[in-house]
Amino acid sequence: MTHSTRGRGDERLRRPAGPRSLRLGDTRVSYVPDGAVQLRPRDLIPDANDEVWAAHPEYLDETGSLVAGIGGLLVENGDRALLIDAGFGPQSWPPAPDGPRGAIHGGALLDGLARLGRSPEEIEAVAFTHLHPDHTGWAWHPAPGADRPAFAGADYLVSAPEWARRDLLQEPEAAGLAPYVRTVADGQEVFPGVRIRVTGGHSPGHAAYVITSGGQRLIAFGDALHSPIQVAHPGWSTVFDHDPVGAAEHRRRLLAELAEADTIGFGVHFADVVFGHVGRNGDDFAWRALDT
């Protein structure tokens, strides 16, 4: 069953997602929330002017902000478990005085894993789409009551180009990952049925993860898209994109692939519509959220 994001008054577009799971053959994937961030839409997407947002109030909360969830994607196959991205961690930041970022907070991811029956010790690897702090938080921040990160027993999988150019990210937290990092190459299988795809664009070595099982495919596309509104406008890059032109080129290829049969997308920041299909009408795309 799908749920269109075109209808106005859609509350799901204005709230962060709760836990959501779906099954692909022998593999279960679950969105594990950690927190949320409010984003100033005009500052986030420079090509979307005030008229755009006036025409699409369904995307904005009562403060006029885009609401982006923060969390990770748990991938389970039998007794084995992989986590894609590690949230923001147990911290909160006030709104930045200018630019796109409003208030941001995390802290719920470990509780969410517990509700799914998983402890951090059961996660064999944490695979990162990229090294921004809203994706690495629990991987470097000490776990409550401990002096080590929650996933210190796991391998930290980072695309080789992302790790090689981590200095460009200017994220001091990345240094805390070093003892656990194992770099991986484009196309490498990192878990049964899960392959990394290095895309670039958003960050120097930004990656997606393609999960294939039971005749279906799910693409966890990281920050290639921040909001469902970009699905209809793939040329709109965000100010967070390292290479805006490259990011837009990748989005166009990604959306064409997401429009193929038996393909599901996972957008970690997509409010409460994190799982969906892409519908296509000629050159036009639309996000069709899954009810899970």
Score class of each variant (00 low, 15 high):
254 L>W: 09
281 N>I: 13
41 P>S: 03
176 G>F: 00
29 V>R: 02
170 Q>C: 10
59 Y>E: 12
189 E>R: 01
236 W>E: 12
158 V>M: 02
260 E>V: 05
104 I>H: 02
44 L>K: 01
153 G>T: 09
153 G>S: 13
61 D>C: 08
147 D>W: 00
208 A>D: 15
42 R>Y: 00
129 T>N: 15
278 V>N: 10
39 L>E: 13
118 R>A: 10
246 G>H: 02
218 L>R: 11
280 R>Q: 15
62 E>H: 06
248 A>P: 07
50 D>N: 03
281 N>T: 15
98 D>A: 11
278 V>I: 12
268 V>P: 15
112 G>C: 12
288 R>C: 15
61 D>A: 08
217 R>F: 11
40 R>D: 04
284 D>H: 13
147 D>T: 10
111 D>E: 15
94 P>A: 05
97 P>Y: 01
28 R>Q: 14
160 A>I: 03
171 E>N: 11
162 E>F: 04
109 L>A: 10
65 S>K: 04
141 H>A: 12
245 V>T: 09
237 S>Q: 10
177 L>T: 04
246 G>D: 08
235 G>V: 07
161 P>C: 07
272 D>T: 07
38 Q>F: 05
45 I>M: 11
43 D>R: 00
88 F>Y: 11
278 V>D: 14
36 A>I: 05
159 S>I: 01
31 Y>T: 04
207 A>D: 02
43 D>A: 11
227 S>H: 15
160 A>G: 01
94 P>N: 05
91 Q>N: 08
178 A>Q: 09
57 P>H: 02
11 E>R: 09
279 G>T: 07
127 A>V: 14
247 A>Y: 01
44 L>Q: 08
170 Q>K: 09
167 D>L: 04
121 E>R: 07
131 L>K: 02
210 V>D: 14
183 T>K: 00
105 H>Q: 15
188 Q>P: 02
247 A>P: 11
204 P>G: 04
208 A>C: 13
114 A>R: 14
18 G>N: 10
143 A>F: 03
25 G>T: 10
137 G>V: 09
95 P>C: 03
215 G>D: 08
234 P>R: 03
49 N>R: 02
3 H>K: 10
112 G>N: 06
60 L>V: 05
117 G>R: 03
100 P>E: 06
63 T>C: 11
117 G>T: 12
13 L>P: 06
26 D>K: 08
152 A>G: 10
68 A>T: 08
90 P>E: 12
175 A>H: 05
24 L>R: 04
126 V>N: 05
98 D>Q: 06
54 A>V: 06
